[in-house]
């Protein structure tokens, strides 16, 4: 909500930054989850794709390539094999905290190595 020249307007967060002349500080998070799952990376990517589609709705989840997924174009998921351990990196910004932590919880509760 911006009040300027005796007028009140509702603008988007990004527009408000511009008008106020302040620089936003972007916060990004990357969480690393080691998971107990054998088999090739592409198979794991596709399993995560199905799981997230089921929990969040199929239109929300896109496959970027054989080892990367994207949720609602804001949460990035990267699946890697590090020293024979399958590791999932989930990355999101502070603005997308709600969705990011939800995705993290879904993956953790279904696959986390005990």
């Amino acid at each position: 909500l911006i009040m300027k020249n005796n007028k009140v307007r509702i603008v988007s967060v990004n527009e408000a930054w511009g008008e106020l002349g302040v620089t936003p500080h972007q916060l990004r998070f990357t969480e690393r989850v080691e998971i107990e799952e054998v088999g090739p990376i592409p198979a794991l990517t596709s399993m995560l794709h199905s799981l997230l589609s089921q929990k969040l709705g199929a239109s929300q989840v896109q496959a970027v390539n054989e080892y990367q997924l994207s949720v609602a174009d804001t949460v990035c998921i990267n699946i890697q094999d590090i020293d024979h351990t399958k590791t999932v990196f989930i990355s999101w910004t502070h603005q997308d905290e709600a969705l990011g932590s939800k995705v993290l919880n879904i993956i953790k509760s279904n696959y986390k190595k005990s």
Partner: peptide, 22 residues
């Protein structure tokens, strides 16, 4: 300069670091 990236393998740590940063 205008961004910070927190990388962790532990949800509790991330939340703690985020709150300190904010």
């Amino acid at each position: 300069e205008a961004s910070t990236h927190i990388i962790s393998g532990n949800g509790k740590l991330r939340e703690k670091l985020r709150d300190i940063l904010l």
